[in-house]
């Protein structure tokens, strides 16, 4: 079962995300961490298959973390989850190397999104217009 690392500093959201992934029966939650620094530590210790990254993190932002993962672990895809649905954040995330951007309103799509990314695709929340962000 694919191992997913959740990087989310809001405790309630992190719990809900873990809950959704576990109950889907399709993934295993490798851990929940609240900062980019902790995420990098976990990545060096476990064989993570995908990182779910909140865009707003303390110290090092989610987008910066995505760029770091993309550089250091290019084989591990990152999916950004965010409260923002503005093109600015989406474009910056994709430019940093994210393979997916899921708006938290569409959090119930997360299972579908992660599956899509794990099979090699790129996933954007259904409320976003993919044509605007094609690189």
């Amino acid at each position: 079962m694919p191992l997913i690392l959740i990087v989310e500093d809001h405790k309630i959201v992190a719990e809900v995300l873990a809950n959704i992934l576990r109950r889907s029966g399709k993934f295993e939650v490798a851990g929940i961490v609240a900062s980019a620094e902790d995420a990098l530590e976990q990545l060096s210790e476990q064989n993570i298959d995908l990182v779910l990254v909140d865009v707003s993190l303390p110290h090092i932002s989610g987008i910066e973390l995505v760029a770091m993962i993309h550089e250091k672990y290019p084989h591990i895809p990152s999916v950004v989850i965010s409260g923002h649905n503005t093109s600015l954040y989406i474009k910056r995330s994709l430019d940093a190397g994210a393979r997916g951007y899921i708006v938290k309103d569409d959090i119930h799509d997360i299972v579908k999104g992660i599956q899509h990314v794990l099979t090699g695709g790129t996933y954007l929340s259904k409320q976003l217009n993919p044509a605007k962000f094609n690189k």
């Binding site: 959201v13 959704i20 959090i107």
Partner: peptide, 18 residues
Amino acid sequence: LHDDLQQRLFAIKAQLVL
């Protein structure tokens, strides 16, 4: 609003959908 209130609302909505 963004870092706390909205996050709680997202969580409630997601839990409800689940």
